[in-house]
C-alpha cells in the first residue's frame, strides 16, 4: 500500500466540523469533472491511491480512469463498501431485510431464504453477502483494487452484535474473487483486532482514526498506541487532523511518529492542500 492516500469524504459533502463547509463542498464537487481534477492533481503529485466509497458517482471516476489506461498507469482504487447512507435511509423505510433486498441484484434470492424461516442455512448468509459485495464491486471492473474495505458502520455494527463470521465471509470472498486483501474500517480498533484474530484473519488491514486528541478512538489514545506497538496489523490512519481540531503540522508530526503506521488517508480539495500534506509527511516518512 502507498503510504499516503487520498480519501473522498470531501467530495460528498461530509465534514465533521461544519454543515456549511459540507454544503459548500457538495456544491463545488457537484460536477464530477471537478472531482476528477483534484484526483488528477493528486495523481500528478504522486498520490496515486484513491480510497473511496462505492457511491454511485465514483462509477464516473472509474469509467474515466478505465478509458485512459496510459494516463493512469499507477492509479489504484481502494473501494470501501457499502455506501452506507443508501442502506440507512432504506432501512428506515423498509426495515433491515427490506433494505438488503432492495440492493440485491436478485431480490428473489433473499425471498427464497426468508421462506426457509429460522432454519437458515449458512450458504444463505454467504450468498447474500457475496452478492452484495459483487454488486458494489462492479464499477471497479478492470481497475487495480488491491484492498477492499468494509465500511465502519457495517464493521462496527457486526462487531457489536458479535456477528464475527461475517468478517471471515467478507475476507474469503474478497481474497477468492478479487485477489484483494480484505480491509476493515473501524472506530473501535482494540475490540476489532481481538475479533479478527479470533476468526483467523491474520495481520489484518485496519483503517482507523489515529489522532493526537483521541477523536473517535474508542478505548482512548493509549489503547491505540499499545495496539500499534504490540499487535500484528497493518494500520491505516484516518481522521489524523480530527476534522481540523489539530493544526496540520502537529497532527502529521504526531501520527508519523507512532510506530508501525503503514499509511495515512487524508482528505483534500485542492492541489495546494495535497502538496502541503505530502510535504509535511515527507518530513517524517520516506515517500515514493
Amino acid at each position: 500500500m502507498d503510504r499516503l492516500m487520498l480519501g473522498d469524504n470531501q467530495f460528498f459533502g461530509i465534514n465533521h466540523m461544519s454543515e456549511e463547509k459540507a454544503r459548500a463542498q457538495a456544491m463545488r464537487f457537484q460536477d464530477i469533472s471537478v472531482v476528477q481534477d483534484v484526483l488528477d492533481d493528486a495523481y500528478d503529485e504522486r498520490v496515486t491511491t484513491f480510497m473511496c466509497t462505492t457511491h454511485e458517482r465514483i462509477e464516473l471516476v472509474a469509467d474515466h480512469v478505465r478509458a485512459q489506461p496510459e494516463r493512469y498507469a499507477d492509479m489504484t482504487f481502494l473501494p470501501c463498501m457499502p455506501y452506507a447512507h443508501k442502506y440507512a435511509n432504506a432501512m428506515t423505510d423498509e426495515g433491515p431485510l427490506g433494505a438488503i433486498r432492495k440492493f440485491l441484484p436478485d431480490g428473489g434470492f433473499l425471498d427464497a431464504a426468508r421462506r426457509g424461516g429460522s432454519a437458515l442455512a449458512r450458504k444463505d448468509i454467504e450468498g447474500v453477502t457475496t452478492l452484495l459485495i459483487d454488486a458494489e464491486m462492479k464499477m471497479f471492473e478492470g481497475l487495480r483494487t488491491p484492498v477492499v474495505f468494509l465500511q465502519n458502520v457495517v464493521v462496527d455494527l457486526l462487531l457489536g452484535l458479535g456477528f464475527d463470521d461475517a468478517f471471515r465471509i467478507f475476507a474469503e470472498h474478497v481474497r477468492g474473487r478479487y485477489g484483494a486483501e480484505p480491509g476493515f474500517i473501524t472506530m473501535n480498533a482494540p475490540m476489532l483486532l481481538d475479533t479478527l484474530e479470533s476468526v483467523g484473519i491474520e495481520n489484518p488491514v485496519v483503517c482507523t482514526n489515529l489522532n493526537k486528541v483521541g477523536f473517535r478512538m474508542s478505548g482512548g489514545v493509549q489503547a491505540y498506541q499499545s495496539l500499534l506497538r504490540d499487535r500484528q496489523w497493518r494500520a491505516i490512519a484516518m481522521s489524523v487532523f480530527a476534522s481540523g481540531a489539530i493544526p496540520a503540522d502537529e497532527a502529521i508530526g504526531w501520527v508519523c511518529e507512532q510506530p508501525n503506521v503503514e499509511s495515512i488517508v487524508f482528505g483534500a480539495s485542492s492541489r495546494r492542500n495535497i502538496v502541503a500534506t505530502r510535504d509535511l509527511v515527507s518530513q517524517y516518512w520516506q515517500l515514493d
Binding site: V153, D156, L157, G160, M187, N188, M191, G214, R216, M217, S218, G219, G220
Partner: peptide, 8 residues
C-alpha cells in the same frame, strides 16, 4: 465526550 464503543 469519548464513548466506550462507537457505532453511528
Amino acid at each position: 465526550e469519548p464513548v466506550w464503543f462507537y457505532l453511528r
